[in-house]
Simulated assay, not measured.
Amino acid sequence: MRRGLKWLAILTTLGMLFVLIGGALVTKTGSSMGCGRSWPLCNGQLIPSPITPETLIEFAHRLVSGGVGFLLLILSIWSWKTIGHKRETKFLVLLSLFFLILQALIGAAAVMWGQSKFILALHFGISLISFASVFLLTLLIFEVDQKFDASKIIIDKRMKIHTIGVTIYSYLVVYSGALVRHTNSSLICRDWPLCLNDAPALPTNLYEWVQMGHRLAAGIIFLWIAYITYLSVRHYKKQQVLYKGWIIAFILVCLQVIAGALIIFTRLNLYIALAHALFISCLFGLLSYFLLLIGRSKKNMVQISKDRFESK
């Protein structure tokens, strides 16, 4: 039974990742109105006709989102019954379902009535929280048989502050990146990393400010994660989950920066742009897992203090 639950969890997590990338694909190809002002039907039809490339992309995104929503519902019920005794399970189930529904409602509202670009930029971030919740739920499921267990983690105060801070900040970076896409600011600066545009000067319009604001935010998170990785290499070699986890986080943020630069150099190559969205999604999921470990670390430290007191 648990083997089936594990496969369902993996399938749902990958499905949520496809929903994220599919949403980015819809935005980057300008396919958001591929089904007109109709939702959940496409152009008022169950099977749209005629089918244009934009219609196909939007319709496929809706089908995948609906299918993943169904999988998530089954996973939520199954997880609640099977591993509901684990303290994080019910919270993650409710969180993933809530943000998946919220994501769908914002998407529907954007199609039917239109939304501000600043509101639309929230859509990717909301999807990201739902994905991270499903990802963490999957890790909990794999912990049941103790083949993957990180319940004995101890994290010091400095590492906790940095981890919480960089995770919250990463969400702001995600929002700024989504804002770049929704305001069509991706290629407003033809140079990288600065926005010279043939004349060294400060940004001169909203689009340049949005683009350069995102680049600055991305630069800060790169340096921040590099520093945290340095701390983990120095002080957490014996705690392999943290040690290897932060090395992976650093690799992901490096790939994110490289992909961001290549978007400019290749003049918005679609595959690189989608990889850019993939890397930040994986990074946010990993940072969310570190937050879960922080919660466990606090519990472990309380238990250690209690054991020491009783031993006296």
Results as ranks from 00 to 15, higher is better:
Leu287Ala: 08
Gly245Ser: 06
Leu278Ser: 13
Leu242Trp: 03
Gln303Tyr: 06
Ala277Ile: 08
Ala259Met: 09
Ala261Cys: 10
Leu242Asn: 02
Tyr289Gly: 05
Lys299Ala: 10
Gly245Thr: 05
Leu274Asp: 07
Gly295Ala: 08
Ile251Lys: 15
Lys299Gln: 05
Lys244Tyr: 10
Leu287Gly: 08
Lys299Thr: 07
Leu287His: 12
Arg267Tyr: 07
Ser288Gln: 04
Leu292Arg: 13
Phe250Ile: 02
Ala275Arg: 10
Ser281Arg: 01
Lys298Arg: 06
Leu293Cys: 07
Ala261Gly: 15
Ile264Asn: 01
Lys298Asp: 11
Leu255Arg: 10
Leu291Val: 06
Leu262Cys: 04
Phe265Thr: 13
Leu286Pro: 07
Met301Val: 14
Ala259Thr: 12
Ser288Ala: 13
Phe279Tyr: 13
Phe265Asp: 01
Cys282Ala: 12
Ser288Trp: 09
Ala273Thr: 02
Gly295Cys: 09
Ala259Lys: 08
Tyr271Cys: 03
Ser288Val: 12
Ser297Pro: 00
Leu242Lys: 05
Phe279Met: 14
Cys254Val: 15
Val302Arg: 08
Val241Thr: 07
Val241Glu: 05
Leu242Gly: 04
Leu252Trp: 13
Val241Ser: 06
Tyr243Gly: 00
Lys299Cys: 02
Phe290Trp: 01
Ala277Glu: 09
Ile263Arg: 10
Ile258Glu: 10
Ile294Phe: 02
Val241Ala: 07
Ile272Thr: 12
Leu283Tyr: 04
Val241Asn: 03
Arg267Pro: 02
Ala275Lys: 07
Phe290Val: 00
Lys298Leu: 15
Leu252Ile: 11
Val253Thr: 13
Leu262Val: 00
Asn269Met: 05
Tyr289Trp: 06
Ile247Gly: 01
Asp307Trp: 11
Tyr243Met: 00
Leu274Trp: 09
Val257Asn: 15
Leu291Cys: 01
Ile272Lys: 07
His276Phe: 08
Phe265His: 08
Trp246Gly: 00
Phe250Asp: 03
Leu255Val: 04
Lys298Gln: 07
Met301Ala: 14
Val257Leu: 15
Phe284Tyr: 13
Ile294Cys: 10
Val257Met: 14
Leu262Asn: 07
Ala259Leu: 13
